[in-house]
Nucleic acid binder design. Structure first.
Lengths: 149, 149
DNA sequence: TTGCTCCTCACGTCACGTGAGGTGGC
DNA sequence: TTGCTCCTCACGTCACGTGAGGTGGC
C-alpha cells in the first residue's frame, strides 16, 4: 500500500472531493453545499486548500443521503438528526466520565426518545409503501387476467 | 342534499380551490402549479373564472402526492406515470372497441411492463426502509441495554 | 508546458411559498 | 358596503446544477 500522493502534507489516505463524491454517489457541489450548511466538514485540507475526505466522512454523507431520499427530510431536519446522533456518539465514547450516573441516564433517555421518534416516521413510511405495493400487485393481477382472455 | 351555491352555473357539487386544497392536503399554489404543468385540470370553472374540483380530481391530486412523497419522483416523471395510467384507463373503458384483439394485447402488455417497472421501484424503496428500521431497532436495543445497568 | 482536478463566485432550475394588487359573490 | 375567497403576476427559497475564470500539482 504505497502513499499515492507525496505532496498532501498530512492527508495520506484521504480522498479528494472528486473521488469522495464518486464514492458517495453525490456531486462535488452537493459536498460543498453540505459543508456550507455545517452538515459535514472534510477531515483535512492540503496546503493548496483542497478538501480531503476520510471514510468516516463518507459514512456521514451516506447517512445524509439516506435521511434525504428514504425519509424525505430536508437538510435542516437532517442537521437536527445528525446533531443528536453526534451527541449520542460522544456519550458512548466518553461513557465512564460523562458526569454523574443520573446525568448519563438523562442523556440516554433523550437519545432513546429521539430514536423512537425517528423509528415511528420510518415505520409509517414503510407501511405506506407496503400498501402501495399491494395496490400495484392488484393492478398487475388484473392486467394479467385481461391478457388471459 | 341541497345545492350549496345557486350561482355556480353547472358546477354543483364541485369544490372551490380552497376546499379542494384543504381536502387534498396541499396548498392552492400547488394545485395551480400542477395545472400549469398539465398534471391536472379542474373539472369546471364558474362564470367568474373560479376553478371547481371534483372528487375524481382530488383522487388525482392524492396520486400525485403519493408518487412525490413515497417514491420521490419529480413532477416530470409523475406526468409520465399519469399519462400511462390514463391510457390504461381509456383501454379498460373502451375495451370492446379498442381496435383489434392484437392491438388490445399490445396495449395490455405495455401497461403490464410500466406497472411492473413501478413495482420494482416501490419494492426497492420498501426494502431500503425495512433495513433502516432494523438498524434503528438495533440502536434502540443498545440504548435500552445501557439504561439497564 | 500540457492535462486534469481543484478552487470560489454567481446565476439558473425545480417545486413550490408568499405577498401585491385586484375581482367575485353571499 | 363589508368580509372572505378567489384571480393573476411576480419575486423569494431550498437543494442543488452549471458554467466562468482562475489555481495546483503530477
Amino acid at each position: 500500500m504505497g502513499v499515492s500522493d507525496a505532496s498532501e502534507g498530512g492527508c495520506e489516505g484521504l480522498l479528494s472531493i472528486g473521488a469522495a463524491a464518486a464514492r458517495a454517489g453525490v456531486t462535488e457541489r452537493a459536498l460543498r453545499y453540505y459543508q456550507e450548511l455545517g452538515l459535514i466538514e472534510p477531515s483535512g485540507r492540503t496546503s493548496g486548500g483542497m478538501r480531503r475526505y476520510s471514510e468516516t466522512d463518507l459514512e456521514r454523507v451516506a447517512r445524509i443521503r439516506e435521511l434525504q431520499t428514504l425519509l424525505g427530510l430536508n437538510l435542516d431536519e437532517i442537521a437536527g438528526v445528525l446533531r443528536s446522533e453526534d451527541r449520542a456518539g460522544q456519550i458512548r465514547a466518553a461513557y465512564y466520565d460523562a458526569g454523574t450516573p443520573h446525568e448519563r441516564q438523562r442523556l440516554l433517555r433523550e437519545s432513546l426518545e429521539l430514536t423512537a421518534e425517528l423509528r415511528a416516521t420510518v415505520e409509517a413510511k414503510r407501511d405506506g409503501l407496503a400498501a402501495f405495493l399491494a395496490d400495484l400487485d392488484a393492478r398487475l393481477a388484473k392486467i394479467r387476467a385481461a391478457l388471459d382472455d
